[in-house]
Design a protein around this nucleic acid. Structure first.
Length: 451
RNA sequence: GGCGGUGUAGCCAAGCGGUAAGGCGACGGUCUGCAAAACCGUUAUACCCCGGUUCGAAUCCGGGCACCGCCUCCA
């Protein structure tokens, strides 16, 4: 591969040159949602970030296998099922379908594989058996726990020593565990819970084990990239590493990529604060292109503050850029430069923010116009934006033609008579109705007022 | 307490050793009856503070300060 891609590896906390295990191919696993409620903007950011990463890897010639799971067995799903008195499968299926639709509406490609925990119980049981066999896990009263004291690299991703974790944790005491930090691979069934037969009796998988199984299923026991939100580093990803590496030689995943989280108006987005924004609601209000560009104009690792004002800023800037492209003279064409520069930015740890900066600059320098707009297709495809050039047109033709026409005619008459007071009043009236009047040389047109 | 992150103009945001991208806003100008829009121009001798390394530091090192996240379920 000619292109030298470097990326920030959370495992080493350093930027590294990317070397795939198999030349020209990349296996990437991204932690998907636990399907117990509608997906929110945090899911959206993670999805968009990795969507762009996969698209870019393909753009520079890699053959990518992209896997993203659904966690469809989980405490929260079960309690929701109890609450609504339905089968937990129903809950999981409902939100899984919602998620699939949300992703599509956000312009994200479908992963090559989207496995569910419930389809992988046999594999999970087999993996647990191997871990027990190797002496890294033990059964206790129908539960199975991973024994972290046996795994010497425990803490290597989150950079913590077992000692410090032991003194700092907030885990409830559990008499079945040998160490407080041991985590469940298999949980003994409690009443009314979905359960499967296993060598340890009826039960269900713990959280973490599913990802070890499903990633290795599709990508092998050693693969290139594992991604997910920052908040998953500990304990989820740490535990995945422990499970997987206890029975296999070498690294589980070579590169760990973690996207930053979202704040809403400077506050952490959380259920308890009640400021969760669902993807569906956001899409009702904002074009998906704007949502993508908003996220992509930040580097994927930094936290992002999401607010109405920020989205409006993006909307304004996109409107300007569209007008600019439309009015730029076709004489100046420097699309090659643009296509070189944005790719360079992306090769450096997927710097989408820089790539968009370059885009704005090239447009404002007059180098991109209606004549060569087709040649930025590659950029659009990688960023997953499309149809955004028509963002304005659709709105301009929206509604209310007749009323506004009437106001314009009256006002133009008033202007002819130099009745400025009446003319201004009519303009204000139009604005109150949601229209901005635009006087041109010898005609007046209108645009919808900004939100 | 441990681990990690962040601190760059009014706001947002790149930059990762070679002399501060980009966006929003603001201001000035052109246009206009006046506006709006559009266009042109201006907008950080300077990157939280203090030391150090270097010919050279926003960038590296040491020490502070502030904010945030994780350490319990979370994208």
């Amino acid at each position: 591969m000619e292109n030298k891609l470097s990326l920030y590896n959370s495992l080493t906390n350093k930027k590294e040159v990317f070397k795939p295990i198999e030349d020209g191919k990349v296996g990437i696993y991204v932690c998907g949602p636990t399907v117990y409620s509608s997906s929110h903007m945090g899911h959206a950011r993670s999805a968009i970030v990795f969507d762009v990463i996969v698209k870019f890897l393909r753009n520079i010639g890699y053959e990518v296998t992209y896997v993203k799971n659904f966690t469809d067995i989980d405490d929260k799903i079960i309690s929701k099922a109890v609450e609504f008195n339905v089968d937990s499968k129903e809950i999981a299926e409902k939100y899984k379908q919602e998620y699939i639709k949300d992703m599509k509406d956000l312009g994200c490609i479908e992963p090559d594989f989207q496995p569910c925990v419930s389809d992988n119980i046999d594999g999970i049981i087999n993996l647990i058996l191997s871990i027990i066999d190797r002496g890294f896990a033990y059964e206790a009263n129908g539960d199975v726990y991973f024994n972290i004291s046996k795994f010497e690299n425990y803490g290597k991703l989150s950079n913590q020593s077992i000692d410090s974790m032991l003194t700092n944790h907030r885990i409830e005491f559990n008499p079945n565990k040998k160490n407080d930090l041991d985590f469940a691979l298999w949980k003994k069934v409690k009443d009314n819970e979905p359960s499967w037969d296993s060598p340890w009796g009826k039960g269900r998988p713990g959280w973490h084990i599913e990802c070890s199984v499903m990633s290795c299923n599709h990508l092998g026991s050693n693969f290139d990239i594992h991604g997910g939100g920052r908040d998953l580093i500990f304990p989820h990803h740490e535990n995945e590493i422990a499970q997987s590496e206890s029975i296999n030689e070498g690294n589980f995943a070579n590169y760990w990529l973690h996207n930053g989280l979202i704040n809403i108006n400077q506050e952490k987005m959380s259920k308890s604060i009640g400021n969760i924004i669902n993807i569906r609601d956001a899409l009702e209000r904002w074009d998906f292109n704007l949502i993508r560009i908003f996220f992509l104009s930040h580097h994927y690792r930094t936290p992002v503050d999401l607010s109405e004002g920020r989205l409006m800023e993006i909307e304004r800037s996109i409107k300007k850029i569209i007008k600019r492209i439309r009015t730029n003279s076709p004489n100046k064409n420097n699309i090659k430069k643009f296509n070189t520069l944005w790719k360079e930015a992306m090769l450096d740890d997927f710097n989408t923010a820089k790539a968009f900066g370059i885009f704005f600059k090239c447009v404002n320098d007059g180098e991109i116009n209606l004549d060569n707009i087709d040649e930025i297709k590659e950029f659009e495809n990688v960023m997953g934006i499309n149809g955004w050039m028509n963002l304005l047109a659709i709105k301009e033709e929206s509604k209310g033609d007749e009323i506004i026409r009437e106001i314009i005619d009256k006002r133009n008459l008033a202007r002819k008579e130099k009745n400025w007071k009446l003319a201004d009043e009519l303009r204000d009236k139009a604005e109150k109705l949601g229209f901005i009047l635009v006087d041109k040389k010898d005609s007046t047109t209108w645009e919808p007022k900004d939100r």
